[in-house]
Simulated scan of single mutants.
Amino acid sequence: MLNVNDALRLPETLAAHFIPQFNIENMRVTQGFDDAPVEQKLIDIPIGKFSKTSFFRVHPDGEYTFQCWLLDLKETNETFLITQEINQLIPGLARLVRLYLATDREGNLRLVPLTLPGTNGQSNRWHVSLQHCLQLAMQKWIRIQANQPAGSYNTWEAPKLQDQPKWPTESMSELVKIGARDKIIAAADHPVIRRLLGEDII
């Protein structure tokens, strides 16, 4: 009587073809496998604030700030970094900001923009409130939430969080370049600028 196991067993010639011969020790995972020479590369750093549920810190070193012009397009939810020369072509449409390097509890980086006072020196209540929040975040883990009736941000601290954030080694200029990526406008013939100037784009 034919044994079921024998019926299911591959002939030796077929087994040799389908089952490769190798040293099983090559499959053993050693205890130090986490020490493989792998380095994480930064490929994206969003520009904007963290969500209202995220605790974050801000880099305390003034070298990790970057003053620039940002052009926000609400209709496409895009933010562009533009040069001073481009800003002069579209007066009143961009805002002067100072970018702060920040990180959340999971190590996700962001470039948080703080809008600076205009040429008249007047400060917006929201911007003043955000500045105070960013200064506090240089020392403590906090999260913020907009208080619309008050026109400012509510702040919550996390006193039990005492660990220090891990910051990247790249310079602020390098980080801004990563964050802006393809959202940098340095030429007047850029499609966005031509559209804002009322020029036909073919």
Rank of each mutant, 00 (worst) to 15 (best):
E106W: 15
R125K: 09
K52P: 01
I43R: 09
D72W: 10
K52F: 12
K52V: 10
C68E: 11
T53V: 06
L14H: 12
S152G: 05
A146P: 01
T53F: 01
E170M: 05
G151P: 00
D35F: 13
P159N: 04
P149I: 10
M27I: 13
R181K: 07
I185V: 12
K74A: 07
D182E: 12
P91T: 11
P113D: 08
D200Y: 13
F56R: 02
T30I: 04
P20Y: 05
P91G: 14
P191M: 10
L8K: 13
E75C: 14
P91Q: 11
E174D: 01
N5M: 14
I144E: 09
D35S: 13
L136E: 08
G62E: 09
I193K: 15
V38M: 15
Q31G: 01
I184K: 07
H132S: 06
E199P: 04
T30V: 13
R181H: 10
K183F: 06
K52N: 02
L101T: 14
T83Q: 12
P20G: 03
R143I: 00
L93T: 06
D6E: 07
P37M: 00
A187M: 14
A186C: 09
T103S: 14
Y153E: 04
T76G: 15
I19M: 08
I43K: 04
I142Q: 08
R195W: 11
R194Q: 05
E25W: 00
A36W: 06
I19R: 07
N124S: 03
M138H: 14
A94Y: 05
T13E: 02
K166F: 10
R125Q: 06
G121K: 01
A150E: 04
F56I: 02
L73F: 12
R95Y: 08
D104C: 11
S129L: 11
L89S: 04
T103H: 00
R194A: 14
D163Q: 05
L101C: 09
E78K: 10
F80R: 00
L161D: 08
A7G: 02
L114G: 05
L70G: 04
R125M: 10
Q162V: 04
M172V: 13
L42R: 10
I142N: 04
E170S: 12
P113E: 01
Q162E: 02
H132A: 08
G118L: 00
G32T: 05
L161F: 10
I202T: 12
D72L: 03
Q135S: 08
Q145G: 14
L109N: 10
D44A: 05
N3G: 14
Q84A: 04
P191A: 11
G48W: 05
P159W: 08
Q40V: 13
F55G: 12
N5I: 09
S123H: 11
S152P: 01
I201P: 15
D44P: 00
I47Q: 04
L109W: 12
T155G: 07
H132Q: 03
Q40Y: 10
Q122H: 08
D163S: 13
I90F: 04
W126V: 02
R105T: 15
G179H: 00
